[in-house]
Write a protein that binds this DNA or RNA. Structure first.
Lengths: 353, 353
DNA sequence: CTGAAAGCGCTTACAG
DNA sequence: CTGAAAGCGCTTACAG
């Protein structure tokens, strides 16, 4: 087994000796480092035997090419940056899984960063991605998607917005058809006979919230049920906010018989609050969520919700990036269909008399 | 505003023009690129006015230093690699949040990769991290923690194992005191008066499963309840597996009155199965989980479980890495205390006569 | 206080 | 088929 000489560290005292470089392998193989580079990158000009010999030597020496040196030379890093609000959010987790799976298959590494929905941190993250020379960026659920436009113009790096959208030459997007999905969800409640239907939204003004509210309102109006502002409350997209918002709905003198929630996390909190008030779902109140997170079918009662294909959406976002990498790009705005999954949290309202 | 000349792309036709480099700034500022480098890195030798002037020019030119070039020179990348089974797993999400928050504070970027619990993919990921020249690696819930030892010896990069452990000069670990925690959990059930207590484990042989089983068994024996092999079943750490394993317990002629589950995800499936059999929790069966994922307190009934401080554990893993980076390192084996959170899914068994 | 030079570990025209 | 040379964008001794 070939041994590298470690100049300056003869006794191996230094606990982080230099890693083998292409030059070390060249010396070991008695060829130039250019030849090593070619052999290892599968250049077919190098004779098969030389290639094989070099490859074996490199293997035995534990040589691993430096992606950082290569990136510097070729002007691409084969990395992408993913910025999420919080990776602890199960929606985000599903999406990132799809992104990373696809990236890994295609030889890309992914940088992950949480913005915690703080614009200032999101800016820091964007700057760091820029310094890292990522080849592309995927952003989920940003409230400052517009921020990326100048960034992209300077970086000349494509950005895919997931779960929100911004019209721009550089910003691509993957998102669910929120209006249609929430139209479906609300119509489902209407069809069951509900007349007072609440909307439990998100107070942060995400585009997805606006669109889901639009679908809700449209369904109400087309059913001739009008629009009652007191039936619209806002949480924070998390269980805690759902709890509080639901409390406001329950405090109403004439409370709704059904609630459509912005997302499953909000619905989780809403369900807890309903239970705390001694009410039953769906007997007293029907509840619909959005996302179809993994826990929905295990709740009691199992939650009716709109399924978003999270992994698939993540995959699409990454594939969009890949398309843009190897070709002249138009702007991609991919719209995914949601699907209403009816479970036992929705039923016809009790007869009131 | 200074303008860079873009040699070879006069018309700006190329859609990815070269980013400004230190040389461009040097030309604009009429100084050497060494001076630019020093000014921008805050070297105090450069006169304040020159520094300020250069900084302003760089800012206006939209200059962003290349972390990849810097990494090559300084021999550190200021990145870490995180390998997880699946980022869609809520346990993992919590931990990674803690890791990334800490990394970001300290100027480190994080590479994230899913292993999907496939040893072969885990190997690919490790190789890719090696090529990326990450400064450290954090691995959660690996079943092949031992695999990292040769890798680390070659890379000379510290590895922190989270939620599993391997004795080695290079492998550090952060994990909960599983034996104690499951001792607490099982004793809680014993104290409530349960005698037939099941253990719903994980079939993949994670170290954490072995340890939790040990705590369970010890508690059973110290209570003089002995050990009944038919009361031990195995899921897959996910709701589906929990469902199936629970079905086997419920099919027993003399079924248990309480079940301690390996984790909350398994418990979620178990609860669904219990309900499907028309049984009530806790009246017919008490259930205890492990992890205290965010949904536990919103279940019906809210789940008694052992809280693991996920974010905090992630933070500790990253801090361990940071300690090792700047000092001579001993081996860190950090043990965290779990805490039993008693909710309404556990109660005394019904009197059988 | 500033500059010229060397070098980090690769890739890739350009010769031969 | 292989090598010598240049260069990617930085940092940092070494001079002055």
């Amino acid at each position: 087994m070939p041994v590298l000489d470690q100049p300056g560290d003869p006794a191996g005292t230094c606990n982080a000796p230099r890693k083998a470089s292409i030059k070390d392998i060249a010396r070991l193989a008695h060829v130039s480092h250019s030849t090593v580079s070619r052999a290892l990158s599968g250049n077919r000009q190098i004779s098969a035997e030389t290639s094989e010999r070099i490859r074996k030597i490199a293997e035995e020496a534990g040589y691993r090419a430096s992606a950082v040196a290569r990136s510097l030379v070729i002007g691409r890093s084969n990395t992408i940056g993913v910025v999420v609000t919080s990776i602890a959010d199960p929606f985000v987790g599903g999406v990132v899984r799809g992104i990373e799976d696809t990236a890994e298959e295609r030889g890309y590494s992914v940088f992950l960063a949480n913005s915690n929905a703080e614009p200032e941190r999101e800016l820091r993250v964007a700057r760091s991605f820029e310094e890292r020379r990522v080849d592309g960026i995927i952003v989920t659920s940003s409230r400052v998607g517009a921020m990326y436009v100048p960034l992209m113009e300077r970086m000349h790096v494509p950005v895919v917005l997931l779960n929100n959208q911004h019209p721009s030459e550089f910003a691509h997007s993957v998102l669910i058809d929120n209006v249609q999905a929430s139209l479906d969800a609300t119509r489902h409640l209407v069809r069951l006979g509900h007349q007072r239907i609440g909307y439990l939204g998100d107070r942060f003004g995400h585009q997805s919230d606006t669109e889901r509210f639009t679908g809700y309102r449209r369904a109400m109006e087309e059913a001739g049920l009008g629009f009652a502002p007191e039936l619209v409350v806002h949480g924070d997209g998390k269980p805690e906010g759902g709890e509080q918002a639901m409390a406001r709905l329950l405090a109403l003198p004439n409370r709704p018989t059904a609630v459509f929630c912005y997302n499953d996390m909000s619905a989780l909190g809403a369900l807890g609050q309903i239970r705390a008030h001694g009410l039953k779902v769906p007997a007293d109140l029907s509840v619909v969520g959005f996302d179809d997170l993994y826990f929905c079918r295990y709740l009691d009662p199992p939650l009716t919700t709109v399924r978003q294909p999270l992994r698939e959406m993540g995959r699409m976002a990454m594939e969009t990036l890949l398309h843009i990498f190897d070709g002249p790009h138009s702007t991609y705005n991919i719209k995914v269909e949601g699907r209403l999954i009816v479970r036992q949290s929705t039923a016809s309202p009790k007869q009131s008399r």
